[in-house]
Every structure is written in C-alpha cells, then in structure tokens.
C-alpha cells in the first residue's frame, strides 16, 4: 500500500484536446493545490466532461501536459490512479444490482476502502437520507437518488483528489447542502476537488477557484 501524498498539486500546462478534427478545448493552463477546489463552469458542450476525463488520464491530450506533483499523469498512471476518485455524470451503477450491492462493488475497485465496509456504506446512505432504498434495485429508484448513491462513494473513499462531473445535477436542495458540507470538510482536511457544475457554488465552499470554459 502506497502512502497517500500530503502535498498535492495538479498543474495543467497548455492542454489541448481534439476528437477527430473537432477541437474540444485548447490551451488550458491552470494549477490547483490541496485545500483548494477548482470549479469548472461553462455552457453545455464546451468540453467540461472531456476536460475532467483528461485529468483522470483516460482521455488523451493532443498537446500539453497534466502533472500531479510535477510527474506526468500518463508516465506514472498507477501513482495517479491511487490518488484520484472519479465520479462521472453517468453514475456507473449497475441496474441489476441493489443500491447496497452497487456501492459494495464500487468499493472493491477502490484500494483506499477497508475490506468489508458494510457499516460505512450504511452510514453514508443514511447521510444522504437514502438508507431506506438500500435494498432497492437501482433501476427502480429516481435519478436524484441514483446520483446520491454514486456520491455516497465520497464518504467511503479515503482518496485525496476528487474529480466530479456535474455532481449537483438532479439533487434536491437538502442534498445540495449536505454535498457542499462534504466539500468543505474535504477541503479543510487538505483534499483537492475538481468539479464541473452549472451552479455557482464558489461562495459556499472555501478556497474555490473558478474557471470558465468558453464555447469553442
């Protein structure tokens, strides 16, 4: 087990991404340290999702680089993957499994989670107020509850870097407050968050850096 880094810095240097001949984003330079949140805003289709995927290392860049602690994320991907928790806007929940089984399964992919996190899963579901849906099939619950289920991973994982794609869509106002609380806690504990959102939450979370992506 590798130790979790205490000082984290993600620096993005003139990153550009093309899909086929279409330019998705170009020349993004930015850097985020721990105890900071990068809030990516912008109109639909401006490449927020692709940008977050490229910080995960699963989207190849056309030019430029993304570095974690001055090491290129593609050259040492295992080190990078040990630190990041990516939750996409598709919830990565299996429709044939229950809420509880899904979280259990997702925890199997996360080495920072203890071996049998049964109690923690229950606690995290209670935090979001969806404990009563524990044994429901995911195909039977509402979109918002699916989102909350996938975000319950934030409470289970001990990883330092959160990469979240539209975590606040479909969520009710009560859930919003809880999620923002979670962000604040993570920031004060020295975590790093990069998230995309259509809601300006920069005032609600401490140390937020806003980044606007224009339509290309």
């Amino acid at each position: 087990m590798e130790e979790v880094l205490n000082n984290l810095e993600i620096s993005i240097d003139r990153a550009s991404c093309f899909k086929g001949n279409n330019m998705i984003f170009e020349n993004i330079s930015y850097s985020v340290k721990n105890s900071e949140m990068m809030l990516i805003m912008g109109p639909n289709g401006c490449g927020k999702t692709t940008f977050i995927k490229s910080i995960c290392g699963i989207q190849k860049l056309e030019s430029g680089s993304i570095k974690l602690n001055s090491i290129d994320i593609n050259s040492d991907s295992s080190e990078h993957l040990n630190n990041i928790l990516y939750i996409g806007h598709k919830n990565s929940l299996n429709n044939d499994l229950t809420v509880f089984e899904n979280l259990e399964y997702l925890c199997a992919f996360d080495k920072s989670v203890d071996s049998i996190p049964e109690q923690e899963i229950k606690k995290s579901l209670e935090y979001f107020g969806i404990a009563k849906f524990k044994d429901y099939l995911v195909s039977k619950i509402s979109e918002g509850n699916k989102k909350k289920t996938s975000l319950a991973r934030l409470l289970l994982s001990k990883k330092k870097i959160w990469l979240l794609d539209e975590p606040l869509s479909f969520i009710d106002s009560e859930g919003n407050v809880k999620i923002l609380d979670l962000f604040n806690k993570h920031i004060t504990n020295g975590g790093l968050i990069i998230l995309s959102s259509h809601i300006d939450i920069s005032k609600d979370v401490t140390n937020t850096k806003k980044y606007y992506m224009g339509n290309s």
């Binding site: 995927k53 995960c56 699963i58 996409g88 299996n94 992919f109």
Partner: peptide, 17 residues
C-alpha cells in the same frame, strides 16, 4: 453496452486494480 452506457468503463479505467 450496459457498462458503456452507465459509465462503468470509466470507473474500470480510473481504478487502480
């Protein structure tokens, strides 16, 4: 197909296992 549509392939690729 299911795993592509519900985004699980991204989770596979971003997990350290």
């Amino acid at each position: 197909k299911d795993e592509y549509n519900n985004g699980f392939i991204e989770t596979y690729l971003t997990s350290e296992t």
